[in-house]
Design a protein around this nucleic acid. Structure first.
Lengths: 341, 341
DNA sequence: TTGTATGCGTTATCAG
DNA sequence: CTGATAACGCATACAA
């Protein structure tokens, strides 16, 4: 049995539809007495407004779209959780799409959203995202940028101070007495620039000369097995060249966890021979052997703030006159056994 | 600038709204000639139908809801991915809610969805879900059950043959020469019943007497640290009692990964002293040390099938006369180093 | 083959 | 304070 409508309610109350509508919306035009009557009746018949009709009338769907590269990425799924929480608290629905780091899929997601009366979107652009397209869509509905914010777009942006995260991690390794710090990162990943910068700055601040051979870059888009194999070769080669006061900083959870396994295969003790720390947002770090020191990014907050700002924009009358800003959140370091002797 | 509407298109074409509507819907009433004209004009002005209006008119929103316990659970997020894929392919939107294994939150999610003109939902019921509520909602819109399907509900159900998964894993450990097989599981988790049953059957089939002390149950709802601490105590105690031909089967990824870390702390070699295998849907298994043998469940397929069946139900005229059925998918075993000497 | 009229369930304007 | 009416954008029964 379908839901009761305003019209049916009105008939039961012997009132007009508009009166009932206003009463339920607590309009000042309606007497307290009628409001009470109407509310009671609505309660009795479990009246629930039809969101579709309301949205059609109001020109707003209270729905926002999220575009992230991979749902299976722990960091990104936490962003989504935060986004969802903020949406929920503001009575917004949330739909999502994955871009799989693919510009074409991202465009497709954008197009899909455009067709769905979405009020706005938050996006973590794919690695090879086309900024021009984003700019164009930003004319049609508000777009908030999260995590990967190094794009020129007139909007709110929520990011993480990755440089500082990498700096802190490097400093931590140095504090643990490591002289040679290896940096593990993927090639051509935008966000890595900041992390590399932080790494370099920390070395500089500690008067440690930068040795380019210590920056180990792996190709992206390999299978996990290939990646592990290649990483192993690179790591082994470099570590053999060094004496044993080594620290290792991984810029992604995949790389870091993989390196932990590889070091073990190479019979290198962690942390005594190689201390390891990495960017990672997975709870599994606690269960690893040894438990993994991590730089944790405030993924939930990123999503939460992103959607909050987005909704702010959506409900604002003149979004083209808004003062946009960029929010940089801090990551935090969790020291576990992989860096502490 | 807003989207062009049918009415505006009609004016430009000097046709009536209904003609344009029919033409765009490829109605047989309209001449090929006009159709071509209309389509061309629609193309030119980037006409996109207003989904809200369409949904309101059609009484269907083409939106389905997903309720899962935790988005951060790799298995469940894969279910969601599959669900999303199926929805996308059928031009359905997908919104989700988390229950956090909490009956109250689940009810709340159900209520939220009811208010949102959802056409149906797929749900992995929370550990303490209230079946009566589900039954009641199932009157209002179709509900498809996924993963945890041991509920009496008149609908489609998609599950996994967990018993067989556990059986295969146990058999694998036996094949690897293990005489004492520890089973690690959480207390009061419904799905575990099947896994325990599979474990027992495998023992039976190999003429290995069941020793109840080998079934190690941990409390749920502890913090990760507590859990690891307690698990360590339980594991250590039991392993000391046994000679060293031990196999270990974990029924959740959390437990399994944790036990890997614990065994290492106890200076027990994996797999030589203890062979480990566990239910897990995370790619990280490959990167662990040693790489972890796993029983992988077809999470994506579960979600995909679930939504497919749901949409089938939604578009069917008389869903109350449908022949519902239950689909059991098979898990598969991936043998890695943690079980192979 | 095309057009007219109606309604989906709301909210908003304006008149009473 | 209340009600009649229009409109949001679309699909469709029915009329022409």
């Amino acid at each position: 049995m379908s839901n009761i409508t305003l019209k049916e309610l009105a008939k039961k109350l012997e009132l007009s539809v508009s009166t009932v509508s206003k009463a339920l919306n607590d309009s000042f035009e309606i007497s307290e007495e009628t409001k009470v009557r109407v509310r009671a009746m609505a309660e009795k018949y479990h009246y629930r407004p039809n969101i579709l009709a309301k949205s059609l009338k109001m020109g707003r769907s209270n729905t926002i779209g999220v575009i992230i590269p991979y749902l299976s990425n722990p960091f990104q799924s936490q962003v989504l959780e935060g986004a969802h929480q903020a949406a929920y608290e503001n009575n917004f629905k949330l739909v999502f799409m994955q871009s799989r780091e693919n510009s074409k899929m991202e465009q497709d997601a954008l197009k899909t959203f455009r067709q769905q009366n979405i009020d706005g979107i938050i996006i973590t652009p794919a690695a090879e995202s086309h900024i021009k397209t984003l700019k164009q869509y930003n004319q049609e509905f508000p777009i908030v940028l999260v995590d990967r914010i190094d794009f020129e777009l007139d909007t709110f942006k929520i990011g993480v101070n990755s440089e500082k995260g990498a700096y802190d991690a490097t400093q931590h390794l140095i504090d643990m007495g490591r002289k040679e710090i290896l940096l593990l990162c993927g090639k051509n990943i935008g966000i890595n620039k900041d992390r590399i910068a932080g790494y370099k700055k920390a070395l500089l601040a500690n008067y440690i000369p930068l040795d380019p051979s210590n920056i180990i870059q792996v190709e992206y888009g390999q299978t996990r097995e290939e990646l592990i194999k290649n990483l192993r070769i690179l790591l082994e080669r470099r570590i053999k060249e060094l004496d044993h006061s080594i620290g290792l900083l991984g810029t992604t959870d995949t790389l870091t966890v993989a390196s932990l396994g590889i070091l073990s295969q190479l019979n290198l003790q962690v942390p005594s021979e190689v201390a390891v720390i990495g960017f990672a947002n997975t709870e599994m770090a606690e269960s690893l052997n040894p438990s993994l020191s991590t730089i944790v990014q405030p993924a939930f907050e990123i999503g939460y703030l992103g959607v909050s700002k987005l909704i702010e924009t959506i409900v604002s009358k003149n979004r083209f006159e808004m003062a946009f800003n960029t929010t940089m959140l801090e990551s935090r370091i969790i020291e576990r056994k992989s860096t502490k002797a």
